Every structure is written in C-alpha cells, then in structure tokens.
Amino acid sequence: MSESASNEGPVPFQHPDEPHREGLAQRLNWLRAGVLGANDGIVSVAAVAVGVAGATAEIAPILTAGLAALVGGAISMALGEYVSVSSQRDSEHALIAKERRELEETPEEELRELAGLYEAKGLRPETARQVAIELTEHDVLGAHLSAELGIDPDDVVSPWHAALASAVAFTIGGILPLIPMLLLPDGVRVPVTFVVVLLALAITGYVAAYIGGSSRWRATIRVVIGGAIALVATFAIGALLGTTGVV
C-alpha cells in the first residue's frame, strides 16, 4: 500500500459497524486465537480437575492434574496456533512474491487480467479497464493482490501474535475453574465449578459469535452444552474409577 493510502482518513459514507480499517486481519487473528484459547482452557482444565475430583476429594491430586493440564494445554495451544498461522503466512508470502514477479515480467497481461476481473463483476469493458489503470497507477501490487487473491500485503497475519494470544487466553481461561476447585470445601467445589465454567463458556461463546457475526444465542447455547457434556462425562468417569477402587 502506498504511503498516501496509509495516511488517508476514514472512508466517506462508511457504515460505522463495518470494519474498513487497516490491520483487520491482525486484529481478528488476535481475537480468534484469544477466544478459542480461552474456551479450550476453560473446558480442558475444568474437565481434568472435575474428573480427578470425582475420584478423590484430596487437593494434591486435583492441583497436580489441574496445573499439568494448564501448562501443557497452554504450550500446546501456542504451538498449534504458531504452526497453523505460520503455514498461512508462508502461503501468503509465496503468493505475494509470485504476483510481484508476474507484474514485473508481464505487466500488460496482468493489466488485462485485472480489467477482466472487474468486468466479470459487472463493469462495462471500458470502465473495467479504466478502473484497472487507475488502481495500477495508485498501487499496482496491492490492486492485483486484492482483486485476485483477497490479500492485503500490509496485513499478513503474525504467528507470534496468534501464539501469544492463544497461550495467554488459555491460561486465563484455565485458571477460572481451578480457583473454586482449590479454594472451596469438598461438598461444594464441583457444583460451583460447574456454574463458573458454564458462565465463562457462555461469555466466550457470545464473544466468538459477535466476532464472527453469527447468531449469538445459538453459538452460546452450543458451547455451553458442549462444556456441560465434557464436565459430566469426566466427573462420571472419575467417580466410577473412585468408587470401584481402581484409583
């Protein structure tokens, strides 16, 4: 993107609820990794802690298992996000390099291709060519990347940002169920943990739906039901193992 484009103010007549701003992919990447990391942290750590609590009322095993799930899960989430986003970034960089090379070697053919893309969207041939010419004069690489590939060269996602957001969010989410499990007495720790976890999942589900622009309540109910099933299943397994004397 040219320097003049980067210094432009808000787009005239832009709807306030539509994100026509630079860095959108980066911000959505942070939010996506953060919300998913928090959701995974809440469910996985709570499931492990509740499962152990179903087998024993002693704090030491619950603490050990909970911390192991917290640390291992945070590292796993960070590595997974880093590998996934790195692959995406490498693909985007390869496509950018290919497009830059084609523009250097066959500029006229690329101009015709760009005009053809706008013509296919409904513009008249002469209008499409004029649009292609003006966009090429403004920012030739950005025009082709946007029209052909949907890529903004100044907004390629960062794997480090995604990994950090995921690890921090997982840790915060995982700490939430550990607090009642470790601080409350045996008789109430599991029920209170259930309530805390389901409330936290409702929040993350709502936020995830808000970011994605989908139905808030459907996504919230879906994630809450999934978390409840995980908690009930692990507690039942822990209780079964505890009562049968296996552990």
Rank of each mutant, 00 (worst) to 15 (best):
S4A: 15
E8P: 03
P10R: 08
P12W: 01
P12A: 00
D17S: 10
R21Q: 05
L24T: 07
G34R: 05
G34W: 12
D40A: 08
A47N: 01
V50N: 08
G51D: 06
V52A: 14
G54M: 00
A55M: 07
I62P: 01
L67R: 04
L67F: 09
L67E: 05
V71K: 12
M77P: 12
G80C: 05
E81M: 04
Y82T: 02
V83G: 08
S84R: 13
S86E: 15
S87V: 13
A94W: 13
I96H: 08
I96Q: 01
K98M: 11
R100F: 00
E102M: 15
L103C: 10
L111M: 04
E113C: 08
A115N: 09
A115C: 11
L117F: 15
L123R: 15
P125V: 14
T127E: 11
Q130P: 10
E134S: 06
T136N: 13
H138S: 06
L141S: 06
A147V: 11
D154P: 02
D155W: 14
P159F: 02
W160R: 13
A167F: 07
A167D: 13
A169Q: 05
T171P: 11
G173W: 04
L178Y: 05
P180F: 00
L184K: 02
L184N: 00
A200Q: 02
Y206H: 12
A208M: 10
A209G: 05
S214D: 03
R222W: 03
V224G: 15
G226I: 06
A228Q: 08
L231P: 10
G238D: 04
G242I: 01
V247G: 13
